[in-house]
Write a protein that binds this DNA or RNA. Structure first.
Lengths: 137, 137
DNA sequence: CAATATTTGCAACACTGTTGCATTTGCAAC
DNA sequence: GTTGCAAATGCAACAGTGTTGCAAATATTG
């Protein structure tokens, strides 16, 4: 099994206690966590450092960042696969969770002449099964 | 033709100059507007009143509220905006311009059971014709 | 026009996120 | 180990977005 330390090292960022603890908190969580959630779980962490650690994890691909329905950023551990580009994502507008759809991504539409495609993202938004159920409780 | 005043009256809320102006600004906009956008368009409006007017319009069904990628609420007059949803966008990573692709977007993939699709966006990124040509100068 | 429930404007606040800068720390090279 | 230095941290201050309380103004109803 690959430790958090190895994950960080492999991702090319310095290994610090803060990054280890934040990543492990994200990985242990069942839901994407907001900055406030993480502050509650890691009471000793500095507010600003926490923001910067989260940024680092997102940039190096270890975490994903999304916006929930209240406009708050939520973060989730993304298990280090940066293959997140070429398949469709479903983002729940309620809980902010992102689901990867395994179905083959649809072929990109034709582009005007001269345009060069670097990257494509099919983003679906809506309500996930959990939140849909919770809605008409 | 139904004037804004009639729309408001029909929706069961008091008709005030602020509500009329805000609704008409929303209806005239090509994109959903943030609170800040509206403040720029209506320089005389009070900040807080603007928030409350927007809330009222949403509650009475004349406007829709959504969160953008930066976590900011954006508002649009109901009825508008359903057409800008279902087509693909190409964003040039060089000049930042966004092009709307007229071709019909591919059908959304199948979702897991219980998931409800509200909105889909096919985002392509790359280099537009202009910038591609400029590149091998 | 008068009565009254709503709405407005203002001040103050709360939450989320960012920037600048001095200090500490990871880590690589000795 | 020790050292050097870029990077990360902690702190303070700030910026943007949204909310609450309350007194004054106003849209509707009769």
């Amino acid at each position: 099994m690959s430790s958090t330390i190895d994950l960080l090292r492999t991702s090319g960022v310095k290994v610090t206690p803060g990054r280890v603890r934040v990543y492990e908190a994200l990985a242990a969580a069942a839901q994407p966590l907001s900055h406030a959630d993480l502050e509650a779980r890691l009471p000793d962490a500095d507010r600003v450092t926490l923001y910067r650690v989260l940024d680092t994890l997102v940039v190096c691909g270890l975490a994903m960042k999304a916006v929930d329905a209240r406009g708050v950023f939520r973060f989730s551990a993304s298990g280090a696969q940066s293959e997140h580009r070429r398949h469709a994502h479903f983002r729940c507008t309620d809980c902010g969770r992102v689901f990867c759809l395994k179905d083959a991504p649809p072929p990109p539409p034709k582009l005007p002449r001269g345009f060069r495609l670097a990257d494509a993202e099919y983003d679906l938004r809506g309500t996930c099964a959990n939140c849909a159920r919770a809605h008409h409780k």
